[in-house]
Nucleic acid binder design. Structure first.
Lengths: 333, 333
DNA sequence: CTGAAAGCGCTTACAG
DNA sequence: CTGAAAGCGCTTACAG
């Protein structure tokens, strides 16, 4: 079923078929347009995607690279991207990297091999992005979300401010020794959030014991392990700030398993405000980034909606959600 | 940068370039192959995706339609699909439908307009799939996951058996009146799981009061609302089985807010065993489907790995994960 | 107001 | 062992 068939049925040329179906029928007779449309409908004609892409030089797809689509931080971004480009008929080709630099590189290879018209690159920031900085992009436009060392338009969140706000909040609740369950040291997001931690700790004159910073992955298991290990090493702390809610939940779990009361003995706070935060054994204090909007903004940078020439917001703030897990020391709720 | 450029640099024809780069160099001189590869590498040549797709008649992408990529049930499937096709260089174009029939229809339109080589269709089963049954698929192969009324190869889970197992488990704990927080009545997954509920209820001689079945969405808010409404209507129950863990968490939350002890007064169980189940305020009993493997199987049906001619498993079982929320009546843990 | 023709960049059947 | 040529199905500049 090709444009030729439609043309034959409508008694016109393929040129006309193409023009009608692409809304380039500037001065075609309404009757002609109608005949073409009817013929196309009757035959169930569909433009051949590859032929159209070859001719126009674009595929109408955007690539999305995320560490883990199962992480709420990222699937909220995915939803933002999707909703922003759906009206324009774009498709999203997505890829998980598991925060592995070589998988990330392969993900980009794959996207380029499919000819996506742009890439939304999230949550990389691995190993100083060395693999990404030295690679070819074949002129494909890229927008990054989150901390990066790449020369592309970037959508950023206030990672520094968010963690600093959590530390200040814990301090207001009377906490002095805040265990920092950070991400892996090679991740830029870890470096950013650590800046926030140290800034606030210094500003408030809190204990800045290097032992209070432990590195973990962004999973519940990693959070559990980090807290258990800190206890085994005899590190004393009255609060935990985790750079990820999954890790924070794991920390919460480990503390309770060790017979330590949250929030009475130790307060806990996380980052990213996953939906579960309020259903946790002790509802979890967290900081929320507007990830949905960030995804939307990234997509609009790559595929601006027709007509609209609005300024796209590139820097986003955060919201502190205070819940029971960080109630003042010795008290509950 | 085209095959012509590579050909010129290597001093061969584009035919040869194509053959070398597509491993069809059956009887080409090793030296020729090498010259072509070197030239391609030096020029950073990449096969033009659209041109290749147009000629070969396939794009190397698979479509994935899910109700909600943020739901663990579905992102586990997505991971399974991704891992199964990654080695073959396929890409996934994904789409959320929010369980809306017209969005689902549009999602399929979009995928077809991108020329995907196959579609993994998950969790539709909306309104008897009327919209999907009457639409054109343009010969695109489809594999469904979950209950459907479509004539496509299907990967299915034992929804009936899983819910029946939950009911039996609750019964063993001494429960007699089990509130069923089902999904929307028009969803096939609801109908299937209700079969499991009713089968077990009858088999065990439990109360089969129609008022015990309430319909809700698969969200925490819907689960909360369902339980509150059941209480307001004076419906008596000593257990809740929800067809979704998010709804089960909402139910748990509502019960505790109403001062009803879980599991002492009312047991709670859900479906799908989201990772968070064990971190819930009361760790949640649930039933787990092998969604990752189901996604893998669906993908292998559409894009079988080269060589392997294995039989793909199409029907999957489940695992009951018993936790504190369903401990026997009057007891804890 | 409409059409014939060129050409996007590949892959492959055919020829030698 | 290698190449010239056809053709995949569009879109668009050009012509009338």
């Amino acid at each position: 079923m090709t444009a030729r068939d439609v043309a034959a049925r409508a008694g016109v040329s393929v040129t006309t078929v193409s023009r009608v179906l692409n809304d380039k029928a500037v001065d075609l007779t309404p009757a002609t347009c109608e005949r073409v449309r009817v013929a196309a409908r009757e035959l169930g004609y569909q433009v051949h995607p590859a032929a159209s892409a070859l001719r126009r030089g674009r595929t109408g797809t955007l690539g999305l690279v995320v560490p883990d689509i199962g992480d709420q931080y990222f699937h909220r971004i995915a939803r933002g991207v999707e909703d922003a480009i759906r009206p324009q008929g774009f498709g999203i080709v997505f890829c998980d990297t598991d925060r592995d630099a070589s998988l990330e590189d392969e993900a980009v290879d794959m996207l380029l091999s499919k000819g996506v018209d742009g890439i939304v690159l999230c949550g990389g920031g691995l190993d100083d992005d060395r693999h990404l900085r030295s690679r070819r992009w074949h002129n494909t436009p890229v927008v990054t979300i989150g901390p990066h060392r790449l020369d592309f338009p970037a959508i950023s969140a206030d990672d520094v401010g968010a963690v600093a706000a959590l530390v200040r909040h814990l301090h207001e609740g009377g906490r002095r020794r805040i265990l920092c369950v950070a991400g892996q040291p090679t991740w830029l997001v870890t470096k950013q959030r650590l800046v926030g931690y140290h800034t606030a700790v210094e500003e408030l004159g809190l204990d800045d014991d290097p032992k209070l910073v432990v590195h973990a992955g962004f999973t519940a298991e990693a959070g559990e392990h980090a807290v258990r290990q800190a206890r085994e090493r005899g590190i004393d702390f009255d609060a935990v700030v985790a750079f990820d809610d999954y890790a924070a939940l794991g920390a919460l779990h480990a503390l309770q398993a060790l017979g330590i009361a949250v929030p009475e003995d130790v307060a806990v706070a996380g980052c990213d405000d996953i939906d579960f935060a309020r259903f946790a054994r002790v509802p979890l204090t967290s900081v929320r980034f507007p990830t949905y909007e960030m995804g939307r903004a990234a997509a609009r940078l790559l595929a601006p909606p027709p007509g609209e020439r609005e300024e796209v917001v590139a820097a986003f703030g955060f919201e502190l959600h205070v819940r029971e897990s960080s109630a003042p020391a010795g008290r509950r709720g």
